[in-house]
Design a protein around this nucleic acid. Structure first.
Lengths: 140, 140
DNA sequence: TATGGACCCTGTAGCAACTATAGGGTCAAG
DNA sequence: CTTGACCCTATAGTTGCTACAGGGTCCATA
């Protein structure tokens, strides 16, 4: 009785998504609940496959679930201007830029910390030292 | 009765740490439980300030709590070789490098996606299109 | 027809690393 | 003696899943 639908495992294989994750997306209302078979199995159609693929691709590009939700909503309003889509993507790009900048600053700090290590004993380890800000008990 | 100790709020102010976070660090065994005042307030000493400063600085540099725990343990064994410290720092740096590379790849993808947007209607939005992988119902 | 194994179901708890809330107690100043 | 800032515990929420436990379903093979 292999009908014209996908079982959850097959949908997962096609979209590279764990079964639990698909159920999770349903639970939080990101992926519509599909109809069920007589045995209470979820029976997915092409529309679910398309939808989940969209979700996965968006997640791969680092969009948050809230952003994905917004993108899905927008994608459905076919005659609207796509300015809002553009805005979400640009905001996300800005966020990625911030993260890259932060990580590069971090990387520089780690680098100079590691460079100074003469690999003696912990007592005069420059790394430990760099991690120990001069704390003082009396107020600043 | 402002004695020779810090209340949790003051410790938080000095280390830029939320009060809840300090209690959380205590609960997970990262920061030693301090003695208590008669009124059951936590009474922190200089050693706690130093310890928490170390933790915060490490966290700022992106070390995980597990890594911080390891670094703290090592920092206490003053006569050991600091190779292990070096190893943790280098492993972390490698991790940061991986993240930067991932984000840069991501940024490139987002860029080309956004570049293609002509800002018409959603129906022919290149961003939505780029997010919609050609899914097919029949197996690959 | 029985049975084994792969699949599916629900519900709940766990992960990192906090953050927030409820519902109270303590303390010092005015 | 009251007000308000601070502190206490305990518990639940956050994000985005992941991992059970304890069952039910389906289908092929012996």
């Amino acid at each position: 009785m292999t009908g014209d639908f996908l079982a959850i495992g097959e949908l997962g294989r096609r979209t590279d998504t764990k079964v639990e994750t698909i159920r999770y997306y349903e639970r939080i209302g990101l992926l519509a609940a599909p109809r069920r078979t007589a045995g209470n199995y979820r029976a997915y159609g092409a529309e679910h496959l398309i939808r989940l693929s969209f979700i996965r691709r968006s997640r791969d590009l680092g969009f948050s679930l809230d952003q994905v939700r917004a993108l899905l909503d927008l994608a459905d309003q076919r005659d609207r201007s796509c300015d809002a889509v553009d805005a979400i993507a640009k905001e996300h790009r800005a966020e990625v830029d911030r993260k890259i900048a932060d990580l590069r600053a971090l990387r520089r700090e780690l680098d100079s910390m590691i460079d100074q290590c003469r690999c003696g004993t912990v007592a005069d380890c420059r790394i430990i030292e760099a991690l120990s800000p001069q704390a003082q008990l009396r107020p600043r």
